[in-house]
Design a protein around this nucleic acid. Structure first.
Lengths: 140, 140
DNA sequence: CCGCATACTCTCCATCGGGAAGTAGGCACC
DNA sequence: GGTGCCTACTTCCCGATGGAGAGTATGCGG
């Protein structure tokens, strides 16, 4: 896939950021962050922890619903690395680990709020669009 | 992974939606939508089309940067099905296909604006957190 | 005839996620 | 003593997905 190596990417960002040009390295970093956090599981976990405060591993899974232990582990670990959640390990057996949002995690949850609202407002339109698309394309 | 079958999921949504209870079927639909749109490529394509208006297939790819033809095709198709983009086919050879945002696509782009801003504001903190996490965990 | 353009489609292969089960180790109960 | 329970992961098998690269159709121009 051909790729522009000139300013358009910088132009994009400068528009959104109100005129502040960003260098390609920062551009890559922001994309990496988006690639990590703009993710269904991250969003659901942010919501679960935002709603309930501090939760243990299995409780996070319960609140999120329908997530494999593997994805839960993976996502929580990424979020911990990114500084979105705080993981507190108690030195006991059985293991006792708690997760809670950091202030940065909470602010990301706030940023995603509009997206959740958008999905709720537009679900009917999307469903209708999908139906029309399927009919136009003779899907099974 | 155990899963709660009772009200908590409804409780979550009702909080965000300001008291409006949602049924499990709607819950599932909203999650499906989030799973489809809360996605790096969708976000980047939304931005590219928002910035540049109408673009041809290869131009979308150029503006987005570093995306495989396969992912570009797949994502555009999903967005078309969801009603986020309009795909206009001209009956010519070589093929001439244009993509542009629908009003709904534009509104989703607006909803994601806060997330982009968040990533730009917090990239340094995330980078620092990742570094500290790597040191704490003896990563290679 | 050959090369070019475009918007996909296809192939090979590496990576990732789902589903299910395994693991460690203290505690309670029989 | 043996067994089961608990928790937070880790591991295994296998199908799904994405990356890289090339192929495809077809009219036009040199």
């Amino acid at each position: 896939m051909p790729q522009e190596v000139s300013a358009p990417s910088i132009y994009q960002w400068s528009e959104r950021a109100g005129g502040k040009p960003l260098d390609p390295e920062l551009d890559r970093l922001v994309r990496d962050i988006i690639g990590k956090v703009a993710d269904k599981w991250t969003m659901l976990i942010l919501e679960a922890l935002n709603d309930h405060g501090t939760l243990r591993f299995t409780d996070v899974g319960r609140k999120v619903g329908e997530i494999s232990q593997k994805m839960l582990t993976k996502t929580l670990r990424q979020m911990e690395a990114d500084g979105l959640v705080q993981r507190t390990v108690h030195p006991v057996i059985p293991p006792h680990v708690e997760y809670s949002l950091t202030p940065m995690g909470r602010s990301l949850g706030g940023a995603f709020c509009g997206v959740w609202l958008w999905a709720e407002e537009h679900h009917a339109a999307i469903e209708a669009s999908r139906k029309a698309f399927a009919e136009r394309n003779g899907a099974a």
